[in-house]
């Protein structure tokens, strides 16, 4: 095992293990996973690769790894958008999701160039991404309330995964969005808040793994 991997914190090791496990579970069950949720495999893979690169840069090269997360944000949003594009029922909402991708990428470029250079935390990009994702989540939940086809949310894998995504982004909104501020004011407090953010990562991937393992009785009707 490479030395830099041994140096990782317990929280990081658990996260990497969870990401690996989720990626394996999703790969094994890929055909059983509903079509709208299949991009979750790419989300897990992207997160795993990002974390490995970031940890390698930090522990092996002893350099600032924050630039890796600048790349993660737009890729993560594209993958999550595909999930929402396939999960939302109304064509207008789907178009909005589709349209938001180039707009978000453009905004990230603006933020990178003018406000958040690669050596700073990309709080603005994360906050924008979160606002968009939370909006899509609420559109999805609102859409469920209008369904008249005997739908049962408790038996729908998409429902539970999107609750996980909603809380993952809401959690990161407050943690990563305010991280720069706390690191500047109080490094120790910033560190604690940073580790609190792992809880949301764990929960998201635990939900994804568990829902991929459980057989849901409801036929998928989001596609």
């Amino acid at each position: 095992m490479p030395e830099w991997l041994v140096k990782l914190s317990v929280a990081d090791k658990i996260y990497l293990l969870l990401l690996t496990a989720t990626a394996i579970i999703l790969t094994v069950n890929y055909k059983r996973v509903p079509k709208n949720l299949r991009p979750l495999l790419f989300l897990a893979a992207v997160h795993l690769i990002t974390e490995l690169i970031a940890d390698y840069i930090h522990f092996s090269l002893k350099q600032n790894n924050i630039i890796v997360y600048h790349f993660l944000s737009p890729i993560e949003y594209i993958i999550v958008s595909i999930i929402f594009y396939r999960s939302l029922n109304k064509p207008a909402f789907r178009r909005a999701v589709l349209l938001s991708v180039p707009i978000f990428v453009f905004l990230v470029g603006i933020f990178e160039y003018f406000l958040e250079p690669p050596n700073h935390n990309n709080s603005l990009a994360i906050m924008t991404e979160t606002i968009l994702v939370v909006s899509w989540c609420f559109l999805f939940f609102r859409g469920l309330l209008d369904r008249e086809d005997g739908y049962q949310p408790e038996k729908d894998q998409t429902f539970w995964v999107l609750i996980g995504i909603l809380f993952y982004f809401l959690g990161n909104f407050f943690i990563l969005g305010t991280l720069d501020y706390f690191i500047e004011k109080d490094v120790a407090l910033g560190g604690k808040i940073y580790y609190a953010g792992y809880a949301f990562n764990y929960l998201l991937y635990l939900i994804i793994s568990l829902t991929s393992l459980v057989r849901f009785r409801l036929a998928q009707t989001h596609e």
């Binding site: 929280a11 658990i14 809380f167 959690g171 580790y195 609190a196 809880a199 764990y202 929960l203």
Partner: peptide, 24 residues
């Protein structure tokens, strides 16, 4: 430090999990 980090994650995770369950 590691124990402290894990504790923070556990506490935050429990709260977040409860909120998620409540929402669901």
């Amino acid at each position: 430090n590691s124990v402290g980090d894990v504790l923070i994650v556990l506490v935050t995770g429990t709260i977040a999990l409860l909120l998620m369950a409540l929402f669901g």
